[in-house]
Amino acid sequence: MSENRMSQNKDYEVALVGAFRREKDKDIALKALTAENQAVMQLTKQRENEIKSLKMILRFREAGVKRLEAVSAGKISAETHLLKEKEEHLKQIEVLRTQVDRNQEVTRFATENLHLKEEIRRHVFFSLFNSLSQ
């Protein structure tokens, strides 16, 4: 009778340990998916910022074309056009500098993301290895 109880207790213990391992594996997978989701959200935000910057540059260039048309039609002076063009070029430079700074940040995030993925892979591998060895 006591051997039967000990066997049942051992079976329960094995089942409980297995349940804890599965729970731990699910937690690891959830953390990995959360990190991946955050990385995707960051990249999405970066792309939206890039699109916003490109739209701004496009508006500057369209305004420049309209001014050139106005200069050729004699509506504004060449000097006025050149001054406005200079202002827009300075704005474009600022937009491009911001874009370059953001790209460096994205590169840093991407590198960090790769390191974290590798760390997760190693952790999952060692968890599986330890599960199989027990």
Rank of each mutant, 00 (worst) to 15 (best):
K52P: 02
V65I: 06
S2V: 07
E36S: 10
K91T: 10
Q38H: 15
H123C: 12
H123K: 15
S133Q: 10
K84W: 09
V14I: 11
F129N: 13
E13T: 14
S72A: 09
E50I: 00
G18L: 01
H81M: 02
N103E: 05
K24G: 00
N103D: 04
V124Q: 05
S53N: 06
H89P: 06
T44E: 14
L33Q: 13
I57M: 00
L30S: 13
K55W: 03
E62F: 04
E88N: 15
E3T: 08
L90G: 11
E62L: 04
L132W: 14
K66W: 01
N37S: 15
K66R: 06
G18D: 03
V65A: 02
A73T: 00
E13W: 11
K31R: 10
K26P: 02
L128Y: 10
E118D: 11
V95I: 13
V124F: 03
R102I: 08
Q99N: 10
N103A: 09
V124N: 00
Q8R: 12
S131P: 03
E62T: 06
T111I: 12
K24F: 05
K117G: 00
S53A: 07
Q99T: 14
M6V: 10
E112T: 08
A70L: 04
D11T: 15
T44C: 15
A32T: 06
A73K: 05
R22C: 03
K10V: 13
D11W: 09
K86P: 02
K75D: 03
D25K: 10
Q46F: 14
K55G: 03
L43E: 13
L96E: 12
L114S: 08
L68N: 08
V71T: 03
R108L: 04
E94Y: 11
R61H: 01
L68E: 15
H123S: 15
I93K: 14
T111S: 11
T80S: 12
E85A: 10
Q38I: 13
E119P: 04
S53V: 02
T111R: 12
L83A: 07
E87Q: 15
Q42T: 14
E94I: 12
I28P: 00
L83N: 07
S7I: 07
K55F: 03
Q46G: 11
E79R: 04
T44P: 10
K31G: 05
T107Y: 08
S131M: 07
E48K: 12
L68P: 01
R22L: 02
Q92R: 13
Q38M: 15
L16Q: 13
H81P: 01
V17L: 08
A39W: 14
R67Q: 08
I76T: 03
E85M: 09
E79Y: 00
I93L: 12
F126N: 11
S131C: 05
D101T: 10
L43P: 08
Q8W: 06
D101R: 06
Q38N: 14
S127N: 11
I28K: 01
G74F: 01
V100T: 09
R21F: 05
S131K: 14
I28V: 07
L114T: 05
Q92D: 09
K24I: 05
K31T: 00
N4P: 06
N130F: 09
Q134F: 05
R59D: 01
K84N: 07
E69I: 08
T34P: 07
L114Q: 07
Y12Q: 12
Q92L: 12
L116V: 14
L58Y: 07
M41L: 13
L68W: 04
R47G: 06
A19I: 05
N113H: 14
L82D: 04
G64Y: 00
